[in-house]
Design a protein around this nucleic acid. Sequence first.
RNA 1: GCCCCCAUCGUCUAGCUGGCCUAGGACGCCACCCUUUCAAGGUGGAGACCAGGGGUUCGAAUCCCCUUGGGGGCACCA
Length: 498
Amino acid sequence: MNHTVRVRYAPSPTGEPHLGNIRTALFNWLYARGQGGSFIVRVEDTDQERLVPGALNSILDALLWLGLDWDEGPTDDGKGNKGAFGPYFQSQRLPLYHQHTERLVASGSAYRCFCSSARLDAIRRAQQQQKLPPGYDRLCRDMPEDERRRRLDSGEPSVVRFRVPLEGATTVHDIVRGEVTWENRLLDDFIILKSDTFPTYHLASVVDDHVMQISHVMRAEEWLPSTPRHLMLYYALGWAPPKFAHLPMILGADRSKLSKRHGATSVLEYRTQGFLPDALLNFLTLLGWSLDDKTDVISRADLVRHFSLDRITKAAAIFNAEKLTWMNGVYVRAMSPQALAEQMLPFLERQEADGGLPNDIPMPLDRSYLLRIVPLVQERLKLLSESAELTGFFFQEHLAYDASLLVQKGMDAAATANALRQSSQRLAALSSWDTATLEALFRPLADELGIKTGQLFGAVRVAVTGRTATPPLFQTMEALGKERCMARIALAIDSLKP
RNA sequence: GCCCCCAUCGUCUAGCUGGCCUAGGACGCCACCCUUUCAAGGUGGAGACCAGGGGUUCGAAUCCCCUUGGGGGCACCA
């Protein structure tokens, strides 16, 4: 039995919240929530040069949007800390890393190295030319102590490297992959403390995972090759390592690491494209995990309840946006009209250039009118960003369409104009304006005019909406209201004049 | 080049301790039904000789080995 599950998501604030990274966060979160454990966010900001202003806020924003709340980590605004094991920014924990580095040096597990970047580059180049495995040549590994001390005292820049055993092997018992073993002699003496006195990822993550009492390290598969280094650090520090689970990667359509050229990679882009957080969450979970042989749509609560490490897939998954879009439609249809209207509003009210309604439509929109429209478009909407496209004609003052669209198959302009005139006359006499009344009027009218219902409805549909594909005609007309419909039909008749 | 991981329909996957698989579900695709258009929904279909080859076994998609293919890693980046 797991005593206390403590898992962490350890983003580095160097860019947008990538789908792959967030999927890792999601698995950690699901496991923590399902096990009654803690989900911790730790900011790995040990590379001063790659820090991107605002990146952390984007990442936290993405987590918050998806509903992945954390128990410990930065505060929601990214400025402070919350939790008993803080601070959760590695840049604020330097003394801790220095302390453990000293221990490793003192015990002989690590050593000062004075090799310059220039020399390192040179040996790497030489190794590549000779087709040798790249890696540090251990020049400083056996430097006499007095020389080491002298150069350090003189202020010569240095790093600290881990003294990797020359023999033996290191084995990790990975939860998803089983036993994986590396020969120690194939690993070089990696740097644990940089010359700017910041730790590398290897040291910092090991120290923090231990000190923060992390029980399971779940991270992307790309970390698997550095796991033996981490294990060596745990052993040298005298600590018991946590359990490891390396998650399958998410790849683009061409099977390479998901990147910009495969389309949107930032979770935030999916938000602006009109995906629902629950749909994305559901979809992302199924990229690398499954409940059984038939379940695709599964609620957040059930995900939390059923998520398990032993059903995580080993093979990398290709991100298939088409299925995500379908799934989003499923979630859209499952919403209450009120909730959907709420979600659609910002998409409708944003700038026309950003996919919103035309700029000449008065904002804010009439909410009760929108609420009458939403049920008509709900099952036709897959992405919230399609809102304006689908509902525009309900709001536009003037419809712009090609008059030839009014003329249905088997009809001509004169017949169409006549049908619309007849329609207009009958409609004018109507005292109530609802779907049933309208249908009762139009069906017999088609008969009288000697045309098919499809022909009549088609002409009226275009007249009233400017489009050939719309929600059901009479419901649409009811929502539009008599005044708008009458005016639009009149305009349509005009446009048919030779 | 070296190390590591992976391998079932185009894609996500079920298949975990071998027989219930002449391989199941979903997306997408194609028909048909419903229907005033578009959707949604319903029904049916095409689509994987389980990467290939060897074994083990009475019997393998399921276990083992090899090959091939794909991916990842080899920084004073994470």
